[in-house]
């Protein structure tokens, strides 16, 4: 069994508002799994539940064979939220130091990881600057660095490349491939169709339902579409006919 994340018939509602209905999906080790869907489809709610912040109304979620939420498991997950959760009064370095010490990284090890992740996202020269002087893209990169600090086995990224220029986006994806090869399982959400092509496996989410899943190639072939967008339209249309 190499299934790292197992979501079984999960539903989530806030009051009478049903956000997710009967979602089941599996993410295998080393995989880059992309959750694709328009905003409001429920992507963030799913990843929050997998990260252990939210709990499902129905169904269950297992991460690394343990039911979530589980505090120990949270040390094995790196989470990058959709909004840049950074302390803007502090410098980039101070932000990273804070998150590193929360994960118990100290002294030499902390310094080492800090330098490594900062260079990974091209921020080494800006670490001393207070974060409120950062551009949107820099903040996203710092958030990513913060999620990578403790070398998590699972990386959950909620819309990681919003507002990042294409060159840097490419370098972030290259880094994700490298991490994946090294054994990290990555779950990423996106609403950008062309970015979805970069994932090993895709789950298409619309109105709180998983309308299709498979590799980008499979999804395109089985619907004889030229692009992921066409495939998404196809699956979305099928549901409407029901």
């Amino acid at each position: 069994m190499n299934t790292v994340i197992q979501v079984s018939s999960v539903s989530k509602s806030f009051g009478t508002h049903h956000v997710l209905e009967e979602i089941s999906l599996n993410v295998e080790k080393n995989e880059i799994y992309g959750l694709l869907g328009p905003s409001g489809a429920g992507k963030t709610t799913i990843v929050k539940m997998i990260a252990g912040i939210e709990t499902p109304t129905k169904g269950s979620i297992q991460v690394l064979d343990t039911f979530m939420p589980n505090l120990y498991n949270m040390t094995r997950i790196g989470f990058m939220a959709q909004s840049d959760a950074l302390y803007t009064e502090l410098s980039g370095k101070e932000n990273l130091e804070f998150f590193a010490s929360i994960y118990g990284l100290k002294g030499k090890k902390q310094k080492e990881r800090l330098e490594h992740t900062a260079s990974l996202v091209n921020l080494t020269d800006f670490l001393k600057k207070p974060v409120h002087q950062y551009s949107g893209g820099m903040k996203r990169r710092l958030s990513l660095a913060a999620a990578l600090l403790h070398e998590p086995e699972i990386l959950i990224l909620d819309e990681p490349t919003v507002g990042i220029d294409p060159v840097l986006r490419q370098s972030i994806w290259n880094e994700l491939y490298k991490l994946s090869e090294a054994g990290t399982t990555i779950l990423v959400t996106t609403h950008v169709m062309d970015e979805a092509e970069k994932c090993g496996k895709l789950g298409m989410l619309r109105d709180g339902r998983l309308i299709a899943s498979g590799s980008p190639k499979e999804l395109k072939e089985s619907t004889s579409s030229a692009t992921i967008e066409d495939a998404f339209l196809y699956y979305g249309g099928v549901r409407h006919e029901n």
């Binding site: 929050k48 990260a51 252990g52 912040i53 505090l71 120990y72 949270m74 040390t75 997950i77 989470f79 939220a81 959709q82 909004s83 840049d84 959760a85 950074l86 302390y87 803007t88 998150f99 929360i102 994960y103």
Partner: peptide, 12 residues
């Protein structure tokens, strides 16, 4: 600012 949520994704 979303940092609470971020903290709640840690084992804190």
């Amino acid at each position: 600012t979303g940092t609470l949520e971020r903290l709640l994704a840690t084992p804190m």
